[in-house]
Design a protein around this nucleic acid. Structure first.
Lengths: 193, 193
DNA sequence: AGATTAACGGAGGGGTGCCTCCGGTACAAG
DNA sequence: CTTGTACCGGAGGCACCCCTCCGTTAATCT
């Protein structure tokens, strides 16, 4: 019912101290990354344990609920994505924004969980969304301020658009890039007239 | 193994003759439409039978495989979509194209199977895709010929873009429309310059 | 090396879905 | 109304997944 209603919720999972336990923990996290990427949030936990080469009991000891496991994977990925925002700070406004979005695309492409998370409604998801927006939105604001991006759309519009396109299957990478280009053209400020 | 390798494959399902059997057949199709729309192609067949108010045996008698059931639902929906193409023939090129796309969006929105089908690889899916493209592509060609749509993108690019956006969750209908508008702006021919 | 105990892994009970099979039902023809 | 049979529905076998529990293993400490 009301687990984690107080203080800072966050993930209650900790990397163990014993050597073998640490190995298993990491293997599980790696396998979970893979499997969640392939099958989405509803992937089989037994499959994850199998792929990590550990018993199902070990999985449950480290991550008592599916949510715990997922959150741990997800937090790491979002963190990486947020860092990427710093690396584009010194590019021209539009370019910086686009480069970050491409980065975003690379993540979402293999990790459809991130895509699913845009709509999910949970504590962790919400706070990750906040972090992600905190990283990306300033880039968009800057592009708007520089007159490079339309001002009648929001960052949320753009992010959802991009993530939707990313989650879609295309015949090849070239088509995906082409389509992303089209969509971004729509975001760009129209030449006066 | 090699079922249906000869002649015109198509769906091997027929509406029964006896009154009660016809009733069940229709109920199953209706329930399947609903459930496939809600849960995608991998929905539970027992759920469909339950919702149709018939036994699971009846489902399997009418539709021996999941594919048979799905194909029957899917064929009907694609047919409706193709018809819509005729109704926009007398609108101006760009408008006609956009109106058809909006129609497309309405379908995909509730029937995510159509979206999934863009990438699936089966006999029926392929032929439906052909039909769908046969209906929509001329509209796009016309818009291109009239100088209203970019010529460096293909109809396939656009359709995948739209269906991707449609399958995405948005906070509300208004946002979805806004984003579709942005994307279509990217498809439109840029004002000279 | 030996003791301590954290950590392991998988058996097993419960749930759900897939699909087959067959005793029962009720439509429709005579 | 009777009868033949097309059709019904769900029980049941198999497979997979969830999660718990506990006897066994081996990492760490002394």
């Amino acid at each position: 019912m009301a687990e984690q209603t107080s203080g800072t919720p966050r993930v209650a999972v900790r990397r163990p101290n014993r050597a073998d336990a640490r190995r298993n923990f990491d293997a599980l996290l790696g396998a979970a990354r893979e499997v969640f990427a392939e099958s989405g949030t509803s992937a089989s936990l037994e499959e994850i344990a199998r792929r990590a080469g550990v018993g199902i009991g070990t999985l449950y000891r480290n991550f008592p609920t599916r949510q715990d496991l997922f959150d741990t994977v997800y937090l790491g990925e979002v963190e990486e994505l947020c860092q990427a925002a710093d690396e584009v700070a010194d590019l021209p406004p539009w370019d910086g924004f686009v480069v970050w979005l491409r980065r975003f695309v690379d993540y979402v492409a293999t990790k459809r969980a991130i895509y699913e998370s845009l709509n999910r409604d949970s504590e962790t998801f919400r706070s990750c969304r906040v972090a992600m927006y905190g990283a990306g939105e300033p880039l968009f604001d800057r592009a708007q301020a520089a007159g490079e991006a339309r001002t009648d759309v929001s960052f949320d519009d753009v992010l959802r658009m991009i993530s939707g396109l990313t989650a879609t299957g295309f015949t090849d990478e070239a088509q995906r890039d082409r389509v992303l280009g089209i969509a971004l053209d729509g975001v760009r400020r129209r030449p006066a007239g």
